[in-house]
Amino acid sequence: MTFSRVRAVLFDLDGTLIDSAPDLGAAADRMRVARGLPSLPLDDYRPMAGAGARGMLGIAFGMTPEHPEFAHLREEFFRNYESRMTENTRAFDGVEALVQALLQRGLDWGVVTNKSMRFTGPLTAAMPLFATARAVVGGDSTPHSKPHPEPLFEAARRLGLAPEVCVYVGDDERDIIAGRAAGMPTVAATYGYLGGRPDVDSWRADASISSPLALLDLLK
């Protein structure tokens, strides 16, 4: 499949453009160690890195948001993460070349993430990769977060484009649900975290890619 009439590409952040699992996992693991619990390997945290505090505290402590201590531990996790957001976080291999290729083709690009702007703003400001992003929409930039389509509509508004000429790329089922609801062609990034649900075919994305640069083959 190839997409026509595309004028911009929007991306999820964690697990799609950047591998932030090392810093997210370390922030949660620090909490375990501080409580006398054994450290867990990064591979335990990685599949749920896209779920932020909910995912990391779930792995570290088997804790859900309904737990009475969740809000308290979440803020401790946030402080830990803020102190090291870019320590080991890197763009996935091929992402920088992909962005350059999009720009050379005259396509705009942007970010739509459920990560709050408390973290998204400083993180994207600290990484040169995002200097050319035309829109950066966080999880609290609109009244709704994904899988609601409103963050994608907001990104399209900031680009001055109709949603249907924007492609949305993400590594979680909620990304595909949001993209489809916004009327955007959707691409599943199977190299990402996948939210612990690797059955990507069930997401009903329009296409899938196993590496960032593979997206270029869909935009001919």
Rank of each mutant, 00 (worst) to 15 (best):
A21E: 04
A21K: 06
A21L: 12
A21V: 04
A21P: 10
P22Q: 13
P22K: 12
P22M: 09
D23M: 15
D23N: 15
D23G: 11
D23C: 07
L24C: 11
L24H: 11
L24G: 10
L24I: 15
G25T: 05
G25Q: 11
A26P: 06
A26M: 10
A27H: 04
A27M: 01
A27Q: 01
A28C: 01
A28N: 03
D29V: 03
D29I: 07
D29A: 01
D29W: 07
M31V: 13
M31K: 02
M31T: 05
M31W: 12
R32V: 02
R32P: 12
V33W: 03
V33F: 00
A34E: 12
A34H: 00
A34G: 14
A34L: 12
R35V: 06
R35D: 02
R35E: 08
R35Q: 14
G36K: 14
G36D: 01
G36A: 05
L37Q: 13
L37I: 14
P38E: 09
P38Y: 11
S39Y: 01
S39L: 02
S39K: 09
L40W: 04
L40C: 07
P41F: 08
P41L: 10
L42G: 05
L42W: 00
D44H: 13
D44L: 12
Y45H: 09
Y45N: 02
Y45V: 06
Y45I: 05
R46K: 11
R46P: 10
P47N: 06
P47L: 10
P47V: 02
P47E: 10
M48C: 02
M48V: 12
M48D: 07
M48Y: 09
A49C: 14
A49T: 08
A49Y: 08
G50V: 08
G50S: 15
G50M: 05
A51D: 15
G52V: 07
G52A: 05
A53H: 07
A53W: 07
A53P: 00
R54Y: 04
R54I: 15
R54K: 15
R54D: 06
G55K: 03
G55T: 09
G55M: 15
M56V: 14
M56Y: 14
M56C: 11
M56K: 05
M56Q: 15
L57F: 02
L57G: 09
L57Y: 03
L57I: 03
G58T: 06
G58F: 05
I59G: 05
A60S: 11
F61I: 14
F61Y: 15
F61C: 13
G62C: 05
G62H: 08
G62V: 08
M63F: 12
M63S: 06
M63E: 11
M63H: 12
M63L: 13
T64D: 02
T64A: 14
T64C: 02
P65I: 08
P65A: 01
P65D: 01
P65N: 10
E66V: 00
E66T: 14
E66C: 00
E66F: 00
E66R: 04
E66I: 08
H67I: 07
P68N: 07
P68W: 05
P68D: 04
P68E: 00
P68Q: 01
P68S: 04
P68I: 13
P68C: 03
P68V: 07
E69A: 14
E69W: 06
E69N: 04
E69C: 02
E69G: 01
E69L: 15
E69K: 01
